[in-house]
């Protein structure tokens, strides 16, 4: 469950963002639509605890995220929040398998090889585990990055334009998988996009 109230972030005087209040229950989804320059990525980074809002309130799973120390923020981000970026990025020197295990390692959790196997089968890249990420297609890479953000069973999934570089076919496949996996672990899924193809996939929508 994620809930925000009166979030505001300013890069400088002339570039300020005030965000609408958001609410998303466990196992539910929320689509945040907005054109370029509306602060979509800024909102997502704020929710992802990558930047601190100037003011406003965020509550994740009943816990107020205001006033967390730097260390607590890093820990919350690693263990409870999974972020999927517009373009899938990986540690290029590691195999797909090790990239997934890396999420466990950096999140200070036990490295779960079983889960790697399970997710790779669910998301359809079980045959690519020993390849390097860059050897995979865009659609496959995005599925691997979904698997990576699921490795620590987060409470909140954030996706930043997850489909903008995919064709229609892959777009629906990726969104379908994302929704299914999020529901399976009972997390809240927030998707930030300007991709009009996704409008019909989400019942709850917010416009920036």
């Amino acid at each position: 469950m994620i809930y925000t109230h009166g979030l505001h972030f300013a890069y400088h005087q002339s570039k300020q963002f005030s965000f609408p209040d958001l609410h998303c229950e466990d196992g539910e989804t929320l689509l945040i639509l907005g054109e370029s320059g509306k602060g979509k990525t800024t909102l997502l980074h704020t929710l992802g605890l990558l930047i601190k809002p100037d003011r406003g309130q965020m509550v994740l799973d009943g816990r107020n995220l205001e006033g967390l120390t730097q260390k607590e923020m890093v820990q919350t981000r690693a263990q409870q929040i999974g972020i999927i970026y517009q373009k899938a990025h990986f540690v290029s020197s590691l195999s797909v398998r090790d990239n997934l295990l890396l999420a466990n390692y950096l999140g200070a959790k036990e490295q779960d090889a079983q889960k790697v196997k399970y997710l790779s089968e669910e998301l359809g890249f079980a045959g690519h585990l020993d390849k390097r990420p860059w050897q995979l297609s865009q659609g496959e890479q995005q599925r691997v990055s979904i698997a990576r953000c699921l490795m620590n069973s987060p409470r909140l999934l954030l996706a930043d334009e997850p489909t903008s570089s995919l064709d229609d076919n892959n777009c629906h496949k990726v969104i379908g998988l994302l929704k299914a996996q999020s529901e399976a672990i009972g997390a809240s899924l927030l998707v930030v996009t300007h991709d009009q193809r996704l409008k019909d996939e989400f019942p709850n929508r917010v416009f920036l």
Binding site: G48, V74, R77, H89, F90, S92, L102, L106, G107
Partner: peptide, 10 residues
């Protein structure tokens, strides 16, 4: 980018 990614991952 990899470094920022790893930092974001904890």
């Amino acid at each position: 980018y990899e470094m920022a990614l790893m930092l974001s991952m904890g």
